[in-house]
Nucleic acid binder design. Sequence first.
DNA 1: CTTTGTCCATAAATGGTTTCATTTCCTTTT
DNA 2: AAAAGGAAATGAAACCATTTATGGACAAAG
Lengths: 334, 334
Amino acid sequence: MTIYDVSEKAGVSIATVSRVLNGSKNVSEKTRTKVLDTIRQCGYTPNAFARGLGLNTMNTIGIMCADSSDPYLAKAVYYIERKLRTNGYDSLLCCTGYELADKISAMHLLLTKKVDGIILVGSNFIYEKDSENKYISDAAARIPVTLLNAALDVPNVYSIVSDDYTSMYQAALEMVQKGVKDVLYFYSSTSYSGKKKLEGYRTAMEEQGLLSPELVQYFSGSHEDVHAMTEQLKTLKRQGLSFHGVIASDDILALAAVKFAKEMNYRIPEDFSVLGYNNSMLATCCDPELTSIDNKLETLCQHLITILMGVLAGNEMPKKTVFSGEIIKRGTTR
Amino acid sequence: MTIYDVSEKAGVSIATVSRVLNGSKNVSEKTRTKVLDTIRQCGYTPNAFARGLGLNTMNTIGIMCADSSDPYLAKAVYYIERKLRTNGYDSLLCCTGYELADKISAMHLLLTKKVDGIILVGSNFIYEKDSENKYISDAAARIPVTLLNAALDVPNVYSIVSDDYTSMYQAALEMVQKGVKDVLYFYSSTSYSGKKKLEGYRTAMEEQGLLSPELVQYFSGSHEDVHAMTEQLKTLKRQGLSFHGVIASDDILALAAVKFAKEMNYRIPEDFSVLGYNNSMLATCCDPELTSIDNKLETLCQHLITILMGVLAGNEMPKKTVFSGEIIKRGTTR
DNA sequence: CTTTGTCCATAAATGGTTTCATTTCCTTTT
DNA sequence: AAAAGGAAATGAAACCATTTATGGACAAAG
């Protein structure tokens, strides 16, 4: 069943069928109903590939995500996909992993498939060196690229970020002011937003004259291995490091800190404070429940889609948008 | 830059360029290198839409998932996407939500986009009535459909399931045999696999003469609302229901049960046993850690892809494959 | 009688793949 | 050595299903 069959059956040209299909103005009511009837009768649907060829688009957006099984990124992908589809776009998902080479090849694949835009979900797509971000600017030379939780100042790249720096700065400041002097920073990511968070903590502690290198601890193990995280904290304790609060770059690290505190028989939050990040489901799974920073993921995603749709419609759009986070106070802080 | 430009520059016909591109046999080594050189020189890439039109495929698989932000489904989507791509297929993701109407329209969308196959991730796509599953058989009349964690006996539909019935049966039996007589079943899903799990519990309890309707409790609230889950258990207790063990259809429900037990000052597992399902990250986040049933998600996904690839290659493939689960013993059971 | 505007058909363009026919070249036979 | 046969290499053209530009027919208005 092709547009030719329809045109023949309806006794009009294929151009007229196309016009009816696309709601073009110059079609008489009589012809319109006649064509629509024929289409309904024989259940015709336009061939998507031919349509793509003619229009040079199939209304598809490429979503790149290092690991969509990470709960936070999964939520982002979910929001983005739903909002894209309500805007008439479909999502081609690429889980790239964390290797640059794999990201580059996934990017090539999406460009080859002729998507209309690319969304990079998560801060791990931006690297230190400009040369390592070339794959992004190259793509942006062809189609708009949007970044969630990362920023890059390059033409045709649009960044949507939450103000992780300030969130962490305030969180650290608050914890110190509540009397926790030796606050350990526990992190597992050196990505764009990972750096911002660390910077926020550092600045706050420095201003209070409390910054110490041993209090900044990197966890290099698997992202889901709560055991190993707890173990690392225990080892630090055993080595004589004193800390009565943990600010974590992530709820799961925070959860490990809570586990650690319990095993040490500290009272939470009286003897030991913990602060997480992302305000994920884990925060309410924990006992006591985690105080965590919410970075308004859905708002970020909504805005990202708005920006991308604007760009695709040919409008001028802001290159970088910053949203502020919010500390959700629960049981692990005073 | 089209295939015509390349053919002109290389002094051959477009057919030859196409043959070189697709690794056809009948091309002399001399022309092959000449064409490849020209292609490299001018950085030509075939137009994906034209290619799709010619081949009637763009090597894309549609993935439908009610809620890809659910950790379990997110993991499944992640595995599936990665494995698809290593097999040369891309993933068009559709998060449908739980409404049948939305599933149907997402299905239409995927068919319109001419994907080569459809994967339904999660057991919530199968309904009681045959008429409600019509959207699946309709799709299967056109392209292969594969089901993860659900089964449907319809031509061109391939089901990959874990044996939830037996897993639950054994888990319930074991708990009873360890001396927990009043085991409450706590569930939140009435999907295909949800029913199988409940059936497993029911049969085991019935065989022991311990089945009681009040011990089967449905949670109707939000999937992430641990509070409400715990609250429901507390209410039951307050109403005089006696239970010293909970078998949950999901780790998060199990986690709520652990919270409940702690608030009641029960010792786990001495006074109170809990068993979860999915062996998710939550299981090791909990304190004590959850005993949980692992249904080998990655194996299921791997097999699903193998089946789908086989079908797409034109091979005869098994219509239904069943894998058995495994109880991962941790701290919440004796 | 010309102009304007509406409606519609024709034809070109989109960028590939594939089939079929033809040429080329090598081997075998006479 | 010439002819025939066959396989490999190549090109021309058909085909895929649409959009869009162009232009023609016809009716109403000036």
